[in-house]
Structures are given as structure tokens and as C-alpha cells.
């Protein structure tokens, strides 16, 4: 339960696309801050990833519906600056 207390100390916006930014974009599209919060809220240990690219494959939203993501990059360049990167 110690994990549940973790809160981010600071936040900044992503400048450049990377694999991590891509995954954060996916989490934030589903309505979560990042993987940490997703695991807290949904009480799961594992998030499904695409074996080929390592991107997040499927997320359950807060209303229990599912978002399914593509194998390839989804976060386009014009959206990279909207992705929030939290620092713990």
C-alpha cells in the first residue's frame, strides 16, 4: 500500500517524441496520469504491451470500458507537446 501514497513532485511537458512519451500519451488518453496511477486505480500488476514495439496495448478506463491501441506510433508530432511528464 506504500505505492498508493506516491504523488508526483513536479510536472513538465514533453518536448520530443520517445517510447516513454508515446506510452504516457496512451495512459493520458485513457484518463490516467501514467502507469503508476493506472496500477493504483485498477489494482493490477501488469499492463499489456505489444511484443513487437513495447507500446501499451490495452487500457481499462475508469468507467470500465476499454481503449485498444495500435502496434505503431499513435502520438503524432503535433501532439507531443501536450503530453505531461510527471516526476516523482
Amino acid at each position: 500500500m506504500a505505492k498508493a501514497d506516491i504523488k508526483p513532485k513536479s510536472m513538465h511537458y514533453a518536448k520530443k517524441w520517445s517510447d516513454d512519451v508515446e506510452n504516457l500519451h496512451r495512459f493520458q488518453q485513457a484518463g490516467y496520469r501514467d502507469e503508476v496511477e493506472y496500477k493504483q486505480v485498477k489494482q493490477v500488476d501488469m499492463v499489456e504491451h505489444w511484443p513487437e514495439t513495447g507500446f501499451v496495448k490495452k487500457l481499462q478506463r475508469r468507467d470500465n470500458t476499454f481503449y485498444h491501441y495500435d502496434k505503431q506510433r499513435e502520438c503524432e508530432d503535433r501532439e507531443v507537446h501536450k503530453v505531461k511528464v510527471y516526476v516523482y
Binding site: 490495452k58 478506463r61 470500458t65 476499454f66 485498444h68
Partner: peptide, 18 residues
């Protein structure tokens, strides 16, 4: 399926896993 009104508007919220 459910329509999701987000800023991008190009995703479907599935009620079950595909």
C-alpha cells in the same frame, strides 16, 4: 461500443475486451 468525446475524437471505448 461507446462514443468517446475527447479532444482527438478518434477512439472507440469498447465495453468488452476485443
Amino acid at each position: 461500443i461507446a462514443l468517446e468525446h475527447d479532444t482527438k475524437g478518434n477512439k472507440i471505448a469498447w465495453k468488452v475486451e476485443i
